[in-house]
């Protein structure tokens, strides 16, 4: 798996004004990386995420996924790429409310050229992988937030995508459930899954191996988590606060 981005620009028109959401981004992500993309709102991280997820096309620049130039593709072909190469995990889960967990997981296979005879068994496998083997017939409203997100992850994995693209996957979850989900991400990563995660929370980003920070549509920093100065400073302060609290508590 390779993901190569060169000189990526995205310009929106807002009335007479031209907004440069991305102003020349260069990136390279290799197989089995666990990357967090961070940035304040307006930094262009959503735009980058949409383009990486093939939901949108850049105004200029190149984006090659597995050596295929997606920036040149028609929307039909992009849909196929999304179906086969990318698994989305959204902040608000986006499950079909009236369909069972199994049906929800089967959704991407409905639009797939492959697996039409094995769609059910594949969906079952995916649900078992995320630890919901006993919840297949449940509807989303019968499940907790963490379980719903697991269903969504199973749905993202069911087509064996090159990239798991998660947009604030823990944004709607409490911290212990968040930890469970992040643990699941770690497991998937250990099994070889490439994960790109968009977040604005430092401690969530800390689970990734590499942090890409965006600012004003440009890459501000891109280094491994352990080398990232902002992350290190954050962790240090967090540790200090914890120590202070512990002191005050006793």
């Amino acid at each position: 798996m390779t993901l190569r981005v060169k000189g990526l620009r995205k310009i929106y028109r807002m009335g007479n004004e031209r907004v440069h959401a991305l102003a020349g981004v260069d990136l390279e992500i290799a197989g089995n990386e666990f990357v967090a993309i961070m940035g304040a709102s307006g930094s262009g991280k959503s735009t980058l995420m949409n383009i990486l997820g093939c939901l949108d096309r850049p105004t200029a620049g190149a984006y090659e996924l597995n050596d295929r130039p997606t920036h040149k593709m028609r929307s039909g072909l992009l849909a196929q790429i999304r179906n086969e190469e990318i698994g989305f995990v959204f902040q608000s889960f986006e499950l079909l409310p009236r369909a069972s967990a199994l049906k929800n997981v089967q959704l991407p296979l409905q639009y797939s050229r492959h697996y039409f005879t094995s769609s059910r068994s594949r969906a079952k496998m995916a649900l078992e992988r995320v630890g919901l083997g006993d919840r297949m017939g449940h509807k989303p409203n019968q499940m907790s937030g963490g379980q719903r997100q697991r269903v969504a992850i199973a749905r993202a994995l069911v087509n064996r995508p090159s990239i798991l693209l998660a947009d604030e996957p823990t944004g709607n979850l409490d911290s212990s459930t968040s930890n469970d989900i992040l643990k699941l991400f770690h497991e998937l990563h250990d099994e070889g899954q490439t994960i790109i995660m968009v977040t604005h929370e430092e401690d969530v980003a800390g689970h990734a191996d590499r942090i890409i920070r965006l600012r004003d549509g440009k890459v501000m920093s891109d280094c491994s988590t352990s080398d990232d100065p902002i992350h290190r400073a954050y962790m240090q302060r967090a540790a200090e606060v914890m120590a202070h609290r512990a002191e005050a508590g006793t």
Binding site: G53, A79, R82, N83, E94, L96, Q110, Y111, R155
Partner: peptide, 16 residues
Amino acid sequence: TREIGLRKAVGAKPGV
């Protein structure tokens, strides 16, 4: 609308 968005995101082509 959201459901349609999701279906498109997981690879449903406009024709579908």
